[in-house]
Design a protein around this nucleic acid. Structure first.
Lengths: 243, 243
DNA sequence: CGCGGCTTTGAGGTCGTTCAAGAGTTGTGG
DNA sequence: CCACAACTCTTGAACGACCTCAAAGCCGCG
């Protein structure tokens, strides 16, 4: 059977039948390489495709009329991206590769067939989408009601926990692979202020850095500062239909 | 056939078979009245239920450790609420009635059965969840990257457009039914500053107010100020399986 | 009529921004 | 393998958008 990044990811949450795995693998039949900085989807473009991200990192973002950018989400391998195009014929957000990536595009109609034939997979996608929504609300609360330092702390913890889902080798450090400007655009700050916060947290011994790598020295305290809760630990899909 | 608020809502986007309508109606078999201010779901409570909101208004929110509140979403009749409990056994957000309301709770397992038997409905729920996610990203961009005035403008327009989906009588005004503090908690401002912005917009002739009712005098300009786009106009579900 | 909640307004403070410039880093082509 | 260009990070100084605190007016309701 073809390897499927996405099926592997789902299977960590809930057992999948071979038929389901095979169906999911079909979504990844057309891998496409894209260079760092390459545009995968441009806002307002007519879109009929979705993607599974197999390798590398991708961000979704919007540019406001005054030129400022809001990064909506950073995606990692195994993520299902561009799902907004299931409801809108024009992309509400842009997608750009943050590193060299491999994405697997597939057509809306392939998704339709999948949903028809594998209701359980449809249910799973529904749930996954809800998880994304909750992740969004966490960041919404951070932007609306927390300090710059808290936002940086929770942002780092979120990246860390999400990376650890697919990479068991991660213990207490990870490659951020984002500029401070990109961090700022994710959490509603300027790059200048992100720098000051990171620097301050470094001086306080909360984190360390060595050539782009972030080391989380005091996770408990970071969680406190960022009002962070790891949602990934609380996922409960036991009630789902068994295959 | 029993009336179903939710089915009616969905049917505006895409035709439903009678069987599907009937199945959706079953979700609303247990209407429950709740008084204004009543708690429907408390954060961290163990939850096994979801709700269809049949009448009135509900908000979802979180309280941060310092006591500040972030309102995540205001819901209107026909909305599907509490769907986070499909993935988490503990509620990630609280739900409170903003007015006297009628909600229809149903168990996760009823949803499971629905998803199994009506794949097309599962697909629809998946799409609806994606729409919520996009609405969230719009607000995220507003909180992260726009001014107080822009946030108020886009907030008012969003309420307006969402109310108009189910209430054809709305032309250019609507009852907000929110205090200025609640508006502030929705868009990451203090009630004091919300007041100043509203007042300023009133003086500029952009809006008017009369006993709690908001009149939008210059929608074009409000959209410009708020960088607002009405997502509801662009929904395209033609590609969905036909029933 | 009086009470509690909401709105309005002012004065002063702060957190994060803006602008600017220098140091460090990375990538590229000769 | 070096030189140069283009980013990225770092730091300082000044500014301003929004907050905090406080008090007074208003409105609906019992």
């Amino acid at each position: 059977m073809a390897t499927s990044c996405f099926a592997e990811r789902l299977a960590k949450q809930v057992p999948l039948s071979d038929a389901e795995k095979k169906a999911l693998a079909r979504l990844e039949e057309n891998p496409r390489k894209i260079k760092r900085g390459g545009m995968i989807q441009r806002v307002n473009d007519t879109v009929t495709e979705l993607f599974v991200l197999r390798e590398g990192r991708v961000m979704s973002f919007v540019i406001l009329p005054d030129g400022s950018r809001q990064i909506l989400r950073v995606y990692f391998p195994g993520d299902f991206i561009g799902s907004a195009s299931t409801i809108y014929s024009k992309a509400p957000e842009s997608l750009v590769a943050l590193s060299d990536v491999i994405v697997c595009p597939f057509d809306k109609h392939a998704l339709r067939r999948l949903l028809e034939e594998y209701p359980r997979v449809a249910a799973l996608l529904f749930l996954l989408s809800n998880a994304e929504r909750v992740a969004m609300t966490d960041r919404l609360a951070a932007l609306g009601r927390t300090s710059a330092k808290a936002r940086v702390a929770s942002f780092l913890l979120d990246m860390f926990d999400r990376l650890r889902v697919t990479d068991d080798s991660i213990v207490d450090s990870f490659d951020l692979k984002l500029t401070q400007e990109e961090i700022g655009d994710s959490i509603g700050l300027t790059s200048v202020h992100v720098n000051r916060m990171i620097r301050q947290m470094e001086q306080e011994g909360l984190i360390s850095r060595s050539n782009g790598r972030i080391i989380l020295n005091d996770m408990a305290r970071l969680e406190e500062i960022g009002h962070y809760t790891n949602r990934l630990k609380d996922i409960d899909l036991d009630w789902l239909p068994v295959s």
